[in-house]
Amino acid sequence: MLLNIVHGTESGGFIVVEDTVKYSGREILKCFINAAIKRGEDVHVLGFETSEAELRAGLDSSSGQKIHFHKGHPDPLGWTCKSSVTVQQFNTPDITRLVQNTPHTKAAVLIVDSLSFILRHHQPVVICRSLQELKKVGVVKTIVGLLHSDLHLQGVVKSVCHLANAVISVAPANNEHCGVAKTTRRTKSGKLMQEEEYFDVSEDAALSVKTRTHQPGHVQTEPDKPKADPTSNLTFNLRLSKKEKEAKEKVALPFVFSQEKKSALLRPTPGTGRITYEPDAYDDFDEEDPDDDLDV
């Protein structure tokens, strides 16, 4: 499912890449850029947290014109007037203008690095509204945002994730070089799909999904080793020969009811008693209320 979302075979919309200090999700973000360029789409990057050079590293250098880097990085708040974009410009009209300034032939992808920085400077409500409007206006086909989920209150993270069509949460796997991605996707019909996958990102920002874990918390079992037989070298005998086995099966066990035993016990013998019961006036035969003789 992760591959499908990154390569855009499943419909666009808003995608959140959620990470914590334990594992950075920026590599996945790069995979999104790389995949979009390979599809021939234009990529608009709103970069506040990393420099252009750092994000471009490893990407195909010939793809230069396809990436439109809206530089927010060295000066995201406008302290030194070095940047073309400040965090104040994160609203629908400004972003629409930025995207439409460059003519494209195909649908565009907007990469936001990172939503956490924007959340530090805007109210969550404002951001959610802007994102929703951007989705509706349709200047970009896909919006991909990186969110450091451990820097915000849970409620804020959840409300941003609610807007998303897909949420990818990354975490480290036992092996340090690959990570685990838990992908939750909402289809158009509203159905939720979830999958956990191991992934690895190579130097040139290509994503490879390694093995799939089918259930959350599923532990990979090691390939079966030939099991050592503990009864192989014993000084006494634990096994039965064929003859011994037959003899053993013939023995009737003392407390097992055979058909003969049962019928012998159930046959009525002369001299056995019988119980007869005649109800008297005080007996209560009312099935409806068995307690009506009680003085309550």
């Binding site: 947290e49 420099s51 920085f117 530090r120």
Partner: peptide, 18 residues
Amino acid sequence: AGAILDFTLYCQATICSE
């Protein structure tokens, strides 16, 4: 804490990257 993180981001951009 947010203002401090903004400060370190600026320092990082200027000193480390630039």
